[in-house]
């Protein structure tokens, strides 16, 4: 079953990427799949609609559950990042306050690799932020503020 859900997630990602203007070759490279598999996916072959439905439900979970579940299913941080970034319909705006001490706990925690440290301060790339808020949970100085920008759904 997990395999099927992963296929469903990949299918959804592939569809989104094509919509964003990537060609099949590029999509195959991003998702580390055969080009023919991508083609099959996009044509709705080799895939049960059930798994797509389950995958769709997962993408609509709260961001943290979507992220952690996807990571648990794939056990691959790079692909998790791509799938979550592509399939998440929500946009977030992240700010780090000056009380940040640069301990790097948030950067180490962020599964999306959206956080880097510069001059002893965390910088969050809102482009990659999936809104899971795990960074804020570990922050010892409560310096991270993440707000949802708009709802794409």
């Amino acid at each position: 079953m997990p395999k099927h859900i992963v296929s469903g997630l990949k299918y959804l990602t592939a569809v989104e990427l094509i919509r964003d203007g990537y060609n099949q070759k590029e999509v195959a490279k991003i998702l580390e799949m055969d080009r023919s598999t991508v083609s099959h996916y996009l044509n709705g072959r080799n895939l049960s609609w059930n798994s797509i439905e389950v995958a769709e439900i997962i993408t609509k979970f709260c961001p943290r559950d979507f992220l952690t579940l996807t990571f648990a299913l794939l056990n691959d941080s790079e692909k998790t990042r791509i799938i979550v970034k592509t399939c998440s319909k929500k946009e977030f705006h992240a700010t780090v306050e000056d009380s940040c001490i640069g301990c790097g706990l948030c950067a180490d925690t962020c599964l999306m690799n959206a956080i880097v440290l510069d001059d002893l301060k965390a910088h969050i790339d809102s482009e990659w932020c999936c809104g899971c808020l795990m960074c804020g949970d570990v922050c010892p100085t409560n310096s991270i503020k993440i707000s949802e920008e708009k709802n794409g759904c």
Partner: peptide, 10 residues
């Protein structure tokens, strides 16, 4: 000197 305000405060 440091650019970090929190470190400076500390």
């Amino acid at each position: 000197p440091t650019k970090s305000k929190s470190w400076k405060n500390k």
